[in-house]
Amino acid sequence: MSYWVVIFDDTDGMLEHRKAHGAAHIAYLTEHADQIVTGGGFRQAQESPFVGGLWIVKNATRHEVEDLVLNDPYYSPDLRSYRIFYWGKAIDREVTV
């Protein structure tokens, strides 16, 4: 089984984009739950605005991961950048977060 980690970095303008596309983004994550195992937003502190996010993706090629990112309603190249990493999971066991 292969795993990938996607790290997203947001600009300040992404906050409004998040508000406008939040429902579509959640629907997209649900639709692709067989590959996007988990994800969530990053904040500097618990109550501060989002500054980025993370996905863990399984059983995909790098090209498929990039397609998932580019087709996500949250993705806007002017507002959000991303990095994709192959993740060598140290202990291959089921994890619930």
Rank of each mutant, 00 (worst) to 15 (best):
Y3W: 14
Y3I: 00
Y3P: 10
Y3T: 03
W4P: 02
V5F: 07
F8S: 01
F8V: 00
F8K: 02
D10V: 00
T11R: 11
D12I: 10
D12Y: 05
G13Q: 06
G13D: 04
M14N: 02
R18A: 06
K19P: 00
A20D: 09
H21S: 05
H21F: 09
G22W: 13
I26W: 15
I26H: 15
I26A: 15
A27C: 04
A27M: 10
L29F: 13
T30L: 15
E31L: 15
A33C: 12
A33S: 15
A33D: 13
D34L: 10
Q35E: 06
I36T: 06
I36M: 14
I36G: 09
I36W: 14
V37G: 04
V37E: 14
T38W: 09
T38K: 05
T38I: 10
G39N: 08
G40D: 04
G41R: 08
R43Y: 04
R43S: 08
Q44R: 12
Q44I: 09
A45D: 12
A45F: 07
Q46L: 15
E47L: 13
S48E: 12
S48W: 03
P49S: 07
P49L: 07
F50N: 03
V51K: 05
V51Y: 03
G53T: 01
L54D: 00
L54N: 02
L54S: 06
W55C: 03
W55Q: 03
W55N: 02
K58G: 05
N59S: 10
A60F: 11
A60S: 15
R62P: 02
V65M: 06
V65G: 04
E66Q: 11
E66S: 01
L68R: 09
V69L: 11
L70C: 04
L70F: 05
N71Q: 13
N71Y: 08
D72R: 07
D72T: 00
Y74M: 11
Y74A: 14
S76Q: 11
P77M: 09
P77K: 07
L79C: 02
L79W: 06
R80H: 01
R80G: 01
R80S: 08
R80C: 13
R80Q: 12
S81C: 02
S81F: 05
Y82S: 04
Y82I: 01
R83N: 06
R83G: 00
R83H: 09
I84P: 02
I84Q: 07
I84V: 12
F85W: 07
Y86H: 13
Y86A: 10
W87K: 04
W87H: 07
G88A: 14
K89H: 08
A90E: 04
I91D: 11
I91F: 15
D92N: 15
R93P: 00
V95N: 04
T96K: 12
